[in-house]
Write a protein that binds this DNA or RNA. Sequence first.
DNA 1: AGTTTGAGTTTACAGATGTAAACTTTAGTC
DNA 2: GACTAAAGTTTACATCTGTAAACTCAAACT
Lengths: 146, 146
Amino acid sequence: MPTTEITETITNAEWCVMRIVWTLGQADSHTIIDLVSQQHDWKAATIKTLIGRLVKKGALATTKNGRQFIYTPLIAEQAAMDTALAGQLDQMCAMCRGQAFVNAIDQTELSQDDIQELIQHLQTKLTTAPATISCDCLPEGYEGSC
Amino acid sequence: MPTTEITETITNAEWCVMRIVWTLGQADSHTIIDLVSQQHDWKAATIKTLIGRLVKKGALATTKNGRQFIYTPLIAEQAAMDTALAGQLDQMCAMCRGQAFVNAIDQTELSQDDIQELIQHLQTKLTTAPATISCDCLPEGYEGSC
DNA sequence: AGTTTGAGTTTACAGATGTAAACTTTAGTC
DNA sequence: GACTAAAGTTTACATCTGTAAACTCAAACT
């Protein structure tokens, strides 16, 4: 299971490549190019560039196999998702995050199990939750609320 | 209440400026520069650039007031947050989004009211939720799962 | 009225990102 | 062993971002 930390961020275009490799577990470039180009109108050269950047960033490992490489993920998909989501949330007013979750969840298809797990976690979280969260958009010492 | 749609995205640095204006409701550049530079080690010139870009993008409106402008948001904060979050989620495997929510919620401070509203929504959502969500990382016709 | 000063505008520039062609190398093929 | 074709590498280039200096212009002060 990949657990390596990565400092550099994975860009939107790179995510598309990573998702293929994450899903397949491993893949050669031919497979990646084949699958990605069915989802996006990108030339093979473009996808090669993305693969190259992901290797350089330490997101994909290579294993030589004859004349080509097998690529495998060096970072875990869930960890990458969590980091990306957390980064997005950090950007936003702490006070408004709850509503953002409500709206995001409303717009997202979730399985029964996912929903039950979420309810579970929320019920636990409720026992220690503060009554209110303050807006943190202004510098220390200023009071504000969105 | 600002409701304008915006096509261009607001960048990370621009978010910092928007949050000030959203929170204050309106502000002149002096105030924005003052507050933002208490949060980030940016020169006034940098913040001016960000303000200018936000005006050009249609995220901030200007009202002349003597020798300066009053800036007001043209887009709603919650809408911007929802769009940003949705964009991030769209990038991620549909099958894994539930777990991403679980982890994000675990890491986020939420108020009792927020949590209760989330539970409420989730309980409603549960009544129509599918048993499972499929991985959508591969092109049509391929089956995969992360 | 002339000068100062601060608000806003223009220009700058490096690095990241999306997009891709051109080139090099080498494993297979004949 | 020479050739070919595909894999990977280099180079390219426009746009976006982060970061900021320089410049312009008019409001406010003297």
